[in-house]
């Protein structure tokens, strides 16, 4: 889980948190789980399709996109439901985690 923690530290920098999330508060496991839920529709790698692969996303842009879906600035009802109720910090951690994943060679 070391790589995941590093990703979370990265996310903390992105959103300007003074204290990084720790394993103790469960954020790490929650982020890992949330990232798994994305696989319900999104392949980690592959050609760009009607549902894009997310394995190589850039974290800042991905977090902004997820906020836009949540807040209705981008309209996609399934994506809006997928990120409903997730706060900015959670989305930033999720985006950083997803960006840290690389397609299998």
């Amino acid at each position: 889980m070391t790589g995941h923690r590093a990703a979370l530290l990265g996310a903390a920098v992105v959103v300007g948190l003074s204290a990084a999330p720790s394993l103790a508060d469960g954020s790490d496991d929650r982020t890992a789980y949330l990232a798994e839920t994305c696989r319900g529709c999104h392949a980690a790698a592959g050609p760009s399709a009607a549902i894009p692969a997310i394995g190589r996303a850039e974290p800042d842009a991905l977090a902004a996109t997820l906020r836009d879906y949540r807040d209705g600035r981008r309209v996609h009802p399934a994506m809006a439901a997928a990120v409903a109720g997730l706060d900015d910090r959670t989305l930033a951690a999720l985006a950083a985690y997803l960006a840290s994943e690389r397609p299998a060679p």
Partner: peptide, 16 residues
């Protein structure tokens, strides 16, 4: 687009 989403989902669930 919905039909294309279905195909993309199919690929994603098989990958998973």
């Amino acid at each position: 687009v919905s039909a294309e989403e279905a195909e993309a989902w199919h690929a994603a669930i098989l990958a998973d």
